[in-house]
Amino acid sequence: MKAKDIMTSEVITVKKDTPIEDIAKILIEKRISGVVVVDDENKVVGVVSETDIVKKEKNIKVPSFITILQGVVFLDSIKEMEEDIKRVAAYKAEDIMSSDVLTVNEKDDLEYVANLMIEKSINRVPVVDDTKTLKGIICRYDIIKSMFSR
């Protein structure tokens, strides 16, 4: 069995400039846990999940520091604080989306897809064709359904 045999082909997508409030409404109304972010050519550029939206509300962690010889030495990462600030101030999908998205090809075997999802602890994986155009999505539910509906 191939990815194309079990994927959901009607994928709910958003663009990078979609407001986070609109994405939250989509997740609630459609009762889904994430959306694929695509560009104008329908290529996958990211994913926004419930976790990404919840992280947006995370408090900013100010780095601890000490002073040595009248200089400031930060004990925590300033970069981490900058990322926290970006998340809290996020307005659009591109501000909070995960951009290092794993995809599978529509010709990949179901076993490969299932193993990838388990190994990488991901709940959904976009399915693309040879040109990297979005064709569908596979969620863990789709795999379970395929296993028990034979």
Score class of each variant (00 low, 15 high):
D5N: 10
P63L: 02
A90M: 08
D130T: 09
F74M: 03
D40C: 04
S146D: 12
T133C: 09
D100H: 12
I138A: 02
S146G: 12
S64M: 07
V104F: 01
V88T: 14
M117E: 04
D130F: 01
V47W: 00
E82L: 15
D39S: 04
K16D: 12
K55R: 07
V36Q: 03
V47M: 03
P19G: 04
I143Q: 04
T133S: 10
M81Q: 05
T18H: 07
E94C: 08
P126K: 09
I78A: 06
C139D: 11
I143L: 11
E94S: 13
E111A: 15
K79R: 10
K30T: 10
I28H: 14
D95A: 05
T13C: 08
S9V: 13
P63N: 01
V72T: 05
E50D: 01
I144K: 06
E80S: 14
I118P: 12
E21A: 15
I28W: 10
M7W: 05
D17V: 12
Q70A: 07
K4L: 09
D109E: 13
G136R: 01
E41Y: 09
D142I: 08
M147F: 14
D52K: 00
E50K: 02
E50M: 00
V48Q: 00
E80P: 11
N59D: 03
V127F: 03
S77N: 05
K120Y: 15
N115H: 14
L75N: 06
I96S: 01
